[in-house]
Design a protein around this nucleic acid. Structure first.
Length: 225
DNA sequence: GCATTAACCACAG
DNA sequence: CTGTGGTTAATGC
């Protein structure tokens, strides 16, 4: 039982920097859980307890706005999701819901903090992940403010293709409504742009199965907004 | 003015 | 939940 983390072959880049003793300490505070699709793993407005590490699977990070729930990010494991929650505030500022079945580790905050305090390499890996996140948000911020519909959708499709699935063919993990929310347009706009892209042979789409046919064109649309 | 873009509404499948 | 059509409002020639 104490060795669960030592022999785990799904360590994050940060935990790979831990020595055996620390891994044993981590094992004591860590518990691995499977969540089913649709289950919520973090609740906005609840007290945050643990750092959540997604081993595999897709998670939707979202928060309540004045009118509706806003999808902030789609996260693919391996990735931490509870770090800003726990370090930034006592109360969760966002929720996280599983899009697919996922495996996750819940890590005790104190232990996690001890590693950051005591292990520079561990801390460095965590900072790397947080910085990449921040840069991603900068980019998404500009995308959403300055691009028109087709640019936003193209951007999202490329994101799924390049970052999430590493494939030109994939199953869209969101409904049209959710994709509209994620890209800051409406579900109707998503529908129209999809059929438009399809007519112009940029993508092939059948329900949620998407194939990117003309990636160049998609990149062009995304760049030009 | 006129064209473009996209949200909102409504209705059908 | 989706796709489509009409309407409306904002914005830019």
């Amino acid at each position: 039982m104490l060795d669960i983390c030592q022999y785990c072959n799904k360590k994050s880049p940060a935990t790979q920097k831990l020595c055996d003793e620390d891994l044993r300490k981590l094992g004591d505070s860590c518990c691995q859980i499977t969540f089913q699709k649709g289950e919520r793993i973090m609740f906005q407005d609840a007290v945050s307890y643990d750092i959540v590490f997604i081993i595999d699977g897709l998670v939707k990070v979202h928060a309540a706005g004045p009118e509706k729930e806003q999808i902030l990010k789609i996260v693919k494991g391996p990735s931490y999701i509870g770090i800003p929650a726990k370090f930034g505030a006592r109360i969760n500022q966002y929720s996280a819901t599983c899009i697919t079945k996922i495996n996750a580790c819940l890590i005790g905050f104190e232990v996690f903090k001890d590693f950051i305090m005591g292990n520079g390499e561990f801390a460095y890996e965590i900072i790397l992940e947080l910085c990449r996140n921040e840069l991603y948000y900068y980019k998404k911020y500009i995308n959403q403010l300055q691009k028109q519909g087709p640019g936003k959708i193209a951007e999202a499709l490329l994101y799924f293709s390049d970052t999430i699935f590493n494939a030109t063919t994939f199953e869209l993990p969101l409904s049209r409504d959710e994709l509209g929310n994620f890209t800051c347009t409406s579900r109707e706009t998503v529908s129209r742009i999809f059929s438009d892209f399809s007519k112009n042979k940029i993508i092939e789409i059948n329900k949620k199965d998407i194939s990117i046919i003309d990636k160049r064109k998609l990149e062009l649309i995304s760049e030009k907004g």
